[in-house]
C-alpha cells in the first residue's frame, strides 16, 4: 500500500468514525420508548457548569441507591423499583441502566443538558424551581438518551421566551 493511499485512509477514518457516532446517537434518540421524568438540581448552588445544566432525575423512588459504586437499573414499568443491573426482573418491560456513584446518586448518562449561553441563567432558575422535565428515549437494553427538556410541559425553547 503506498503512502498516499494510507493518507486517504487516515483522513477518511476519523470522518467515518464521527459520522457513525452521530448516526448511532441519532438512531438511539429516534427509536426507543419515550419516557418523561421530572428533574431537580441535586446541588442548587452549582446547577450550571459551563454551558450545560447538571441535575438529578427524579425516578420517583426513595433511597434509589442502597449501595455506592454499583451498577444499578431502575425499572419503570410495570412498577418502579431499583435493582442490581444484572438481575433486572423478567417482567420489567421498561428499565434504565446506570450506576450508583460514590455519593449514592444514580447516574444513567443523562444528567447533563447542553444549553445556549444566552439562556443559561433563565433555564437554571426554572430547573431550580423544579419546573423541568426530561423527555427520554429508552431502548430495550436500558440505554437512555435525551430527546428534549421541557419547562412547565413546554419545549425549553418556548419557555425561555415566556416572561416567567
Amino acid at each position: 500500500m503506498n503512502k498516499r493511499t494510507l493518507l486517504a485512509i487516515a483522513l477518511t477514518l476519523p470522518i467515518l468514525a464521527l459520522a457513525a457516532t452521530a448516526w448511532m446517537k441519532s438512531t438511539q434518540r429516534s427509536s426507543g420508548a419515550e419516557v418523561a421524568l421530572p428533574i431537580e438540581g441535586f446541588d442548587p448552588r452549582d446547577l450550571l457548569s459551563g454551558h450545560y445544566l447538571i441535575y438529578q432525575v427524579d425516578y420517583g423512588l426513595e433511597n434509589l441507591c442502597a449501595a455506592t459504586d454499583v451498577a444499578t437499573a431502575v425499572c419503570l414499568q410495570p412498577e418502579r423499583l431499583a435493582t442490581p443491573a444484572d438481575t433486572v426482573p423478567a417482567d420489567c418491560k421498561l428499565f434504565i441502566r446506570g450506576y450508583c456513584d460514590s455519593s449514592a446518586n444514580f447516574n444513567a448518562g443523562i444528567e447533563r443538558f447542553y444549553i445556549p449561553e444566552e439562556h443559561a441563567a433563565i433555564l437554571e432558575n426554572k430547573v431550580r424551581d423544579k419546573r423541568g422535565t426530561l423527555v427520554l428515549s429508552v431502548d430495550p437494553q436500558g440505554t437512555a438518551v435525551i430527546r428534549d427538556l421541557l419547562i412547565d410541559g413546554q419545549p425549553w425553547q418556548e419557555a425561555v421566551k415566556a416572561p416567567n
Partner: peptide, 15 residues
Amino acid sequence: CLASIGLISQIFHSG
C-alpha cells in the same frame, strides 16, 4: 475532529 466530538456531545446531550 476534537470539536466535532464536542458538537455531537452537545447535540445529543451525551454525558
